[in-house]
Amino acid sequence: MKKLSLVVLTVSSMFMFGQKTSDYRYISLPAKFTSFKEDFGLGELLAKTLKNKNYIIVPTDKLQWPSEAKDNPCNVLLADIINDSSFLRNKIVVTFKDCNDKEIQSIKGTSNIKEYKEGYQDALKQTYSLISPTKSIDHNQIVTKTVNATEEKITSNNSLVSENNSAQNFSNGKIDLQKIQIDRSQFILANPNSSSPFATFKTTTKNDVFRVKLQNGESTLGYFENGNIVIEIPQTNGEYTKEVFSKK
């Protein structure tokens, strides 16, 4: 029950957070920008830029993080600068990723200055206007509200998970999954022994056809067929196999 409740919470949080850079307060910079031979003053310039946008730069050493960041590392955004230069121009890409390595924002900057240090810094300055100031949202408060809302929903429905599980068990012969309806537009297939869903389904404009997000992050399609749930599983050669989950 706790595992499945956590699955519901995870999915609810996933759809609740339309994450943007400005949703974060803390940002961590790497000790070294690995795509550059040297720093070229980029770390100091980016840190100054972010501080001017009211972000708090935390040290590379997590032991020195503020308690709010240390208690929940997902309160911290991870910034990086990537060398994307061409033969004629100095180009950089500033990226921001969350604690799950998901890219939140990517900003490109280009300079006609040929000297490396001046060119890279000029390219970085081009990204300044596209970095939004922080809104200083406390993710702990959001998660707490989500937990409370999920618990209330489960309680008010006399255990949402149990209700959906009563006749919603599916299997492909190798793994057993449970269909949990999140709301009218989305449901998940969950493994009771995992805290993340095997697959998340969202409705499309066509009845019984869904956009599917797999546990490994891949996106594909799914649909109902003769009472079964079918997922098109992407293969490395670009083709798809048909995975059929039958109701038990």
Rank of each mutant, 00 (worst) to 15 (best):
S5K: 04
F17R: 12
F17S: 08
G18T: 11
T21V: 14
D23Y: 02
S28A: 10
T34P: 01
K37C: 00
K37R: 08
E38V: 05
F40P: 04
K48N: 08
T49S: 12
L50M: 03
N52F: 00
K53F: 01
Y55I: 05
K62Q: 14
K62D: 11
A69S: 05
D71Y: 08
L78I: 12
L78P: 00
D80K: 07
I81S: 11
I81N: 11
F87S: 15
R89A: 12
N90P: 09
D98P: 09
D101I: 12
K102L: 13
E103N: 13
E103C: 10
S106G: 03
I107M: 11
I107Y: 11
G109H: 13
Y116H: 12
S129Q: 08
I142N: 02
K145E: 14
T155L: 10
S156R: 06
L160P: 00
S162R: 07
S162L: 12
N164L: 03
N164T: 00
Q168W: 07
S185K: 15
I188F: 08
S195C: 04
S195W: 06
T200L: 15
R211S: 14
V212G: 04
G222W: 07
Y223N: 14
E225G: 06
N228L: 03
I229S: 01
V244L: 02
